[in-house]
Design a protein around this nucleic acid. Structure first.
Length: 795
DNA sequence: GGCCGGGGCATTTTT
DNA sequence: TGCCCCGGCC
């Protein structure tokens, strides 16, 4: 953690007290010579997009077309035109994107100027504004940001309190419906009054959803908390109800740039629109072909309709792909052209023609995993690729397991994206909950987390009593804790004592939250709360790792403080650290050791990345496209875009694979190849029709009892005769069993490619059917057909 | 409070 | 099949 330099908390700019700021804006001449240089580094369409600043601009940036370059150069260009850095607002979707862009701008303009830009994620920028304007909308500027887990927990609690069936009102479903409502700017009040929604819920047999929404919102308010969606919803409310505030910011932000515009939702669209309505100085960059987040509320219409929303807008298309070979670009084009709703564009590559996309057809998911792992092994050995040049992309996380196994067996190093991030670990969330409670004592979720951790004899029953009292009095848990008698909490004297002890623990922290620096206060808290001790005394492997994580977090806070001191902050408060940390997630985990490993991730997670070699696996109906998208054209088009994103990650080689059977949800299912394979023009494909042979190991482990069908192209009704075998030939059974095997006898010690070493217990049959029973050291006893198993005699 | 076992369930997840 | 969540038990 901690290497994130993106958020600077210099609110001073907002209040016009620039004089007290550390930074000095340099005259434009200072970097004008650099500017001339880099304008020449752009192609014509990039340069046009960069230098057009007179009105609304939509930049359609195809995959690999140098989008970030355009954005960063455009910002540099604006600075050169005389825009002050703090009048430029640049919005991204990820912290990583913001950080990278800021770093690139810093190389042109210097860090001092880059740091003054308003550049960050939608959520972090508007959280910052909301903290400044909090009182206007009835919040404290110390408000907590609930993450997805917090809001789900709260919803669970509410559903329970309302004594509703959590099978009918599934927290996840409730959460996503509320989220959708918020993204569409439907407040709970509006929801209750919206006939269509209410009737829809009645029809869906969840009539009380509106009540859950209202309660949830009320609880967030009591807790002084906003969830991720609230950050955008409340910003809209702020701008709607306080024209003076809107005026202030729309005047402040002289130029607004938005990255990944295809992923914006309605709430984001409207914020931007309000800010730019008067100035019309807006430039949005995106690629409708890469819109893959509709399930999170993203609305592709925002980019498709931009020209109508901003009359007189100019459209720039970046159509040259600098990333991939021609075959890859052409294949991707032929795929995406099957979509109806899109902005016409012609992406092309001037790189070499390159290899065709390989299509692998395998019998099972096992074989697919092994084929991919073998292929990676072969390619890295033959062509000198590093393992980090490879990515394996899949539709669902569940597919990673077999791949992982296959890579492990082949001793190929890999890393999987998509696990729990640092900040989602329990021990980290627990510590942060303390920080949260100190900054905002009304934070209900933080309260519930820490009240009895470490254990101090305040159990669920007591907490439930506190909650009940808080709900009745319409106040926060902390207020109830502060005066249990006043709120008539029915607890005995012993419990009362424990409660006041907890309060006595927290109050000194709270009193010092604005005077101590974050690192000092944090250290104090982990010591005094008993957390440090609790984790330190757990000597289990898990416990040790938790303790290390705690140390890591503390280290991160120290670094955070140092960084901000260097940037000129006199004091770095805990709230400053928290407001940054609550908006960090997975991708921001910069602690990752950068060793040479194959990357395994979902296609979604791969967006924005590139690899020399990409494998897209599991291209089957009911997997990719997802079965959920089946009977919905828009959803199928989104799945197709997802596949487009996958293919366009590849620079040199792209391999597509599918299995004919797959073990899923507890049973083996037969699968047919994805319709998307048929969408790609055959000219760009190498269909591996003949390589249907399985590896010997998998055959023995999972015999395929159905007779092998005669080869038929999955992609065409009749296979064109030009299909050729693209796999390197596998050893034939005869070859496999010959020289090294020799006469095998019971008691011999043998070695197997995958199972390692073992002892032969028995040999049955002869010739073609000969099999051996081998007790492997690490894999148990297995029966192996000698014609397939490449057993080597060890001694 | 923590551990175990049964049952239900099973996309994607930038903040 | 395997994971997660809940409920029951110690």
């Amino acid at each position: 953690m901690g290497k994130n330099k993106q958020t600077s908390l210099n609110y001073e700019f907002l209040d016009g007290e620039i004089a007290i700021c550390f930074f000095v804006s340099l005259p434009a001449e200072y970097f004008s010579h650099i500017m001339t240089d880099f304008l020449e580094q752009l192609n014509d369409s990039q340069r046009e997009a960069v230098t057009y600043c007179e009105g609304p601009a939509l930049v359609i940036a195809g995959a690999g077309s140098g989008k970030t370059r355009v954005l960063t150069y455009k910002i540099a260009y604006l600075l050169k035109q005389g825009y002050k850095p703090w009048t430029i607002l640049a919005l991204t979707f990820t912290n990583k994107a913001a950080r990278e862009m800021k770093e690139r701008i810093a190389t042109i303009t210097g860090g001092a100027i880059a740091d003054q830009l308003w550049m960050g994620t939608f959520h972090s920028i508007f959280a910052r504004i909301l903290r400044i304007e909090a009182e206007r909308i009835g919040f404290s500027s110390n408000f907590t940001i609930y993450d997805a887990a917090d809001s789900k927990n709260l919803l669970k609690a509410i559903i329970k309190e309302m004594q509703l069936d959590d099978k009918t009102y599934r927290p996840g479903m409730v959460q996503s419906r509320i989220s959708n409502a918020k993204n569409a700017l439907i407040t709970c009040k509006a929801y209750e009054q919206n006939k269509e929604l209410v009737e829809g819920d009645i029809h869906a047999k969840i009539p009380l959803l509106r009540d859950i929404y209202t309660r949830y919102q009320n609880r967030c308010l009591q807790a002084g908390a906003m969830d991720f969606d609230d950050l955008l919803l409340q910003t809209n409310i702020l701008f709607r109800d306080h024209p003076d505030v809107l005026a202030k910011y729309s005047q402040r932000f002289q130029y607004v740039l938005v990255d990944e515009y295809q992923d914006t939702n309605f709430a984001q669209h409207l914020i931007i629109k309000k800010l730019c309505e008067a100035s019309r100085r807006i430039c949005v960059v995106g690629d409708d072909a890469q819109s893959i987040y509709s399930f999170r509320g993203a609305n592709i219409d925002n980019i498709l309709q931009f020209r109508n929303q901003y009359p007189g807008c100019r459209i720039f298309k970046l159509e040259q792909n600098y990333r991939s070979t021609q075959n890859i670009v052409n294949a991707a084009n032929s795929l995406i052209n099957k979509n109806k709703e899109q902005i016409p564009k012609t992406i092309y590559s001037e790189k070499e023609v390159g290899s065709k996309l390989r299509v692998l057809s395998l019998y099972s998911d096992y074989e697919e995993a092994y084929a991919v792992a073998s292929s990676v092994g072969r390619m890295s050995a033959a062509k000198g690729y590093r393992f980090s040049d490879f990515a394996i992309l899949y539709r669902t996380n569940a597919q990673s397991r077999l791949l992982e196994e296959a890579f492990r067996k082949r001793a190929i190093p890999y890393k999987i994206y998509g696990g729990l991030s640092f900040y989602q670990r329990k021990e980290i969330k627990d510590i942060i909950a303390y920080f949260r409670l100190i900054v905002n004592p009304h934070d209900e979720e933080a309260f519930k987390r820490v009240i009895n951790y470490p254990a101090r004899g305040i159990g669920e029953t007591t907490v439930n009593k506190l909650i009940a009292a808080a709900v009745i009095a319409d106040t926060s848990l902390w207020n109830v804790l502060a005066s249990p008698a006043e709120y008539a909490v029915p607890v005995n004297a012993g419990t009362l004592k424990k409660l006041s002890a907890f309060r006595a623990l927290m109050e000194p922290f709270i009193a010092q939250r604005d005077t101590l620096d974050a690192d000092e206060l944090a250290t104090l808290v982990v010591k005094e709360s008993g957390l440090l001790q609790l984790l330190a005394q757990d000597r289990s492997t898990e416990g040790i790792s938790k303790y290390e994580n705690l140390q890591e977090l503390l280290k991160g806070i120290v670094e955070f403080c140092q960084l901000h001191r260097e940037e000129g902050s006199e004091q770095v408060r805990l709230v400053d650290f928290l407001s940054e940390v609550s908006l960090l997630t997975d991708q921001d985990d910069t602690r990752e050791e950068s060793t040479d490993k194959v990357t395994l991730m979902t296609v979604h997670a791969a967006k924005g990345l590139e690899f020399r070699n990409v494998f897209v696996v599991g291209l089957e109906e009911d997997l990719f496209p997802s079965p959920m998208a089946k009977d919905n054209l828009r959803a199928i088009e989104e799945e197709r875009r997802l596949f487009y994103v996958a293919i366009t990650r590849a620079e040199e080689n792209c391999t597509l694979s599918y299995a004919k059977s797959r073990f899923r949800n507890g049973q083996t299912q037969m699968c047919s190849p994805s319709r998307f394979l048929r969408d790609i023009d055959l000219r760009y494909l190498d269909v591996d029709g003949l390589t249907t042979a399985s590896t010997s190991e998998t055959q023995i482990r999972r015999p395929i009892d159905t007779p092998r069908p005669a080869f038929r192209s999955p992609l065409q009704q009749t296979p064109p005769p030009t299909f050729k075998r693209v796999e390197t030939p596998r050893p034939t059974p005869a070859a496999a069993s010959s020289p090294s095997t020799g006469p095998l006898q019971t008691g011999m010690r043998v070695s197997h490619e995958r199972f390692g070493e073992g002892v032969v217990l028995a040999i049955e049959d002869t010739g073609n059917n000969a099999k051996a029973t081998v007790a492997f050291d690490n894999f148990g006893t297995k029966q192996l057909l000698l014609k397939f198993a490449k057993l080597k005699i060890v001694e």
